[in-house]
Amino acid sequence: MLYRVEGIVIRSMDYGEGNKIVTLCTENNGKIGVIARGAKKVKSRLAAMVQPFTYGEYVFFRQNGGLGTLNQGEIIESHFSLREDLFLAAYASYACELLDRTLQDEEVGRFWFTQLKACLDALSTGKDPQIVLHLYEIKVLQAAGYGPSFSACVNCGAEDDSTFMSPRLGGKLCRRCRHHDPAAREITAGTYKLLTLFERMDMRRLGNISVKDSTRQEMKELMRSFMDIQLGLKLKSLQVLDQLNKYNI
C-alpha cells in the first residue's frame, strides 16, 4: 500500500553501502520506519529528505507492516540551521531521542508531532535552547503519564505558597506534606513561577523569555532530577550535550 504522510525525521542510520533507515514522527500514523535506498549517495534525490530534524511530506510503500520503502518526498522545513550548529544539533538530537525512547510506535500522535515540531521551530528561531528543552521535557512527562504537579501538592492537592519540589513523588509538596519526602528541594520564587507557567503552556505558545542564570541553573538541576527519576533513560544525545556544556564548546 502507498502512504503519503507529513513527518519529522527523528532518527537516521546507515544501512548497507548506500542506504539509510529513518524513523519518522508523523501526525496521524505514529512512528514509522522507512528505508531510503541509495540515500547515502551525494546525488540521490532522497539524500536531503532523510537528514535529521527534516520536516517534510514522505511517500512510501509498505506491505504487511515492517519497514516501508521511501519513494519520494518534499521538504517543508529542512531545519538546516539546527544541523550546522553544534550546540543546536545536540539540543535537537536530545528532543528527538527523548520522544523516540519514551513512546511506543502506537502512542505517537498529533500532540507529540505538534510539540516536537514546535520545539524544533523554537530552537531554529533563536529562543533560549535550554528553556525550550525544559518546557519540552515537561510536555513529554505529561504525555507519558508522569506529568509533574507544580501548582498543587502532589500528595493532598492543596495550593499553598510552598515551593518544595519532590522529583521522587512527582511534583510540589505543601508544608504539611513535606515530611513525605525529606529530600524535597525548596526552589526560588522565579523558578517556581516558570514551572507553574510551563505546566499549563503548549510548546506552540512559547515566546521569548529572559531567564536569569541562577534560575536557568536551578531549572536544569531540578528537571534533570525529574527526568532521571521518572523516566530513568540513558540518552546518548544528553551525554553529548553535557560534554559540550562542560567544556563550553
Rank of each mutant, 00 (worst) to 15 (best):
3 Y>C: 06
9 V>K: 01
12 S>Y: 02
15 Y>D: 05
20 K>A: 10
21 I>F: 01
24 L>S: 04
26 T>K: 09
30 G>H: 10
35 I>S: 12
37 R>F: 13
44 S>P: 02
47 A>H: 07
50 V>Q: 02
52 P>N: 12
57 E>G: 00
58 Y>F: 15
58 Y>R: 01
74 E>Y: 03
74 E>N: 11
75 I>P: 01
78 S>L: 10
83 R>F: 07
83 R>P: 01
84 E>I: 12
86 L>S: 07
88 L>S: 02
102 T>W: 07
106 E>M: 05
107 E>V: 10
114 T>H: 13
116 L>R: 07
116 L>W: 05
120 L>G: 01
126 G>E: 15
132 V>H: 06
141 L>N: 05
143 A>V: 01
148 P>Q: 10
152 A>K: 11
153 C>L: 12
156 C>R: 08
158 A>R: 15
160 D>P: 05
166 S>C: 14
167 P>Y: 13
174 C>H: 11
175 R>I: 15
184 A>K: 08
186 E>G: 00
188 T>A: 14
188 T>C: 11
193 K>R: 14
194 L>W: 07
195 L>I: 09
199 E>D: 12
205 R>W: 14
207 G>L: 13
207 G>P: 02
212 K>Q: 14
216 R>N: 11
217 Q>I: 14
227 M>P: 01
238 L>A: 11
239 Q>K: 15
241 L>H: 08
243 Q>I: 07
243 Q>P: 01
244 L>V: 08
246 K>P: 00
